[in-house]
Design a protein around this nucleic acid. Structure first.
Lengths: 164, 164
DNA sequence: CGCTTCATTCAGAAATTTGTGAAGTTAAGG
DNA sequence: CCTTAACTTCACAAATTTCTGAATGAAGCG
C-alpha cells in the first residue's frame, strides 16, 4: 500500500486515476493542463486544492497552475475562493456546478447559430445548400431548448437518488 | 458580384462563410482541416464534393484532403461514395446523419463512465471524493439515457417542420 | 498488359502550442 | 513602510502538431 502524507489515501492510485481521467478530457478537446488540474481537484477529498498542492501533485510550475486555473475559471468549471485574510487561493469544484457548465455550452451554441444564420443568408434561402443550413440551424435551436429541460430533470433525479 | 465557374454562386461569400463556420468548429475542439473540409461540404449545393474540388476551394494539397476526410469518415460526420466504375471519390454530408453523429458521442460517454468507475474504486466509495465521483458518474449515465430520447423528439419535430 | 488518374502514405519543414524560469505585481503582517 | 508570500505575466525553448511534396499503391480504360 502506497500511503503518503496526503491524508491516508493511496497516492499512486489517485495519481493514476487523475492522469487517466485527464487523458479522456484531453481527447474530448480540453487542453492538457486544465484537464489535469481539473481531474486533480475532482479527486481531492475537499474538492479543493491550493496552487502549491496542485503544483506538487502534478509536478508543474506555478505558472502552469495559474494558466490552467484561469481557463477553468473562465469556463465556470472551477471557482476561486480565498479565506478572508490570507492570500492563499483555493480552487474549488463546486459539486454539481461544473457539469452544468459542461452541458451549458450555451455560448458555443449561440455562436454556431449565428454562423449558420449567416450561412443561410450567404448561400440563399432557396438554394439546396441554404435549405440544408436552415435545417441544421433548426436542429441547434431545438437542442438548445431541450438541454435546459434535461438539466431540470437531472436535478430532480439527483435529488431523489442522492438526497441533498 | 463575384461569380465564378462554381455554378453561379457568390464564391467569395461562400468561402467567407466556410472559413467562419470552420473557425467555430475549431474553437469547439475540431482540428482545422477536418473543420474546413466539413464546412465546405456543408455549404456545397450537392452536400458532396470531390477531392479535387475540396483542394481547390480550400487551397490545400491532396494529402491534406485525404487526412481530413479520414478523420471525418471515422467519426461518421461524412461518408465516402464513389460512382461505380470510377475511382474519383465523392465525400458526402448525409443530410441529418452528421449531427446525429455529433450528438451521439456515445463512445466518448462510455469511456468517461469507465474512467469514473475506476475513480470510484481507486478513491473508495465512502470517501468524500469517491462520493463526488459516483455522483458525476450518475450524471453521465443519466445524460446518456436522455440523449437518445431527445434525438427521437428531434426526428418528430423535424418531420413536422421540414416534411421529409 | 501498360498507361493514366486518383488516392494514400511518409518524411520532413514550418508553424503553432505548451510549459518554464524569471521578473513583476499585489496585498498581508509585522 | 518594509518584508515576504502568493499569484500573474512574459519571453523564450522545447515539444507537438500540421501540412506539404514526393514516392507508392490501386483501379479503370484502352
Amino acid at each position: 500500500m502506497t500511503e503518503t502524507a496526503g491524508g491516508g489515501r493511496d497516492a499512486e492510485a489517485v495519481s493514476k486515476f487523475v492522469e487517466s481521467f485527464a487523458a479522456q478530457l484531453v481527447e474530448a478537446g480540453m487542453q492538457r493542463m486544465p484537464a489535469r488540474i481539473f481531474a486533480a481537484l475532482l479527486s481531492s477529498d475537499e474538492g479543493a486544492m491550493t496552487s502549491a498542492e496542485l503544483g506538487e501533485q502534478l509536478q508543474i510550475s506555478p505558472a502552469a497552475v495559474s494558466g490552467g486555473v484561469r481557463y477553468l475559471a473562465q469556463t465556470h468549471m472551477v471557482s476561486r475562493e480565498r479565506e478572508p485574510g490570507s492570500r492563499r487561493e483555493r480552487y474549488v469544484v463546486h459539486g454539481d456546478q461544473w457539469y452544468e457548465a459542461l452541458t451549458n455550452r450555451e455560448a458555443v451554441l449561440k455562436r454556431w447559430e449565428g454562423a449558420l444564420r449567416d450561412g443561410v443568408t450567404s448561400l440563399g434561402e432557396n438554394t439546396p445548400a441554404g435549405r440544408r443550413m436552415a435545417e441544421t440551424l433548426a436542429f441547434f435551436e431545438f437542442i438548445e431548448g431541450e438541454v435546459s429541460a434535461m438539466m431540470e430533470r437531472w436535478r430532480v433525479h439527483r435529488q431523489q437518488v442522492f438526497g441533498d
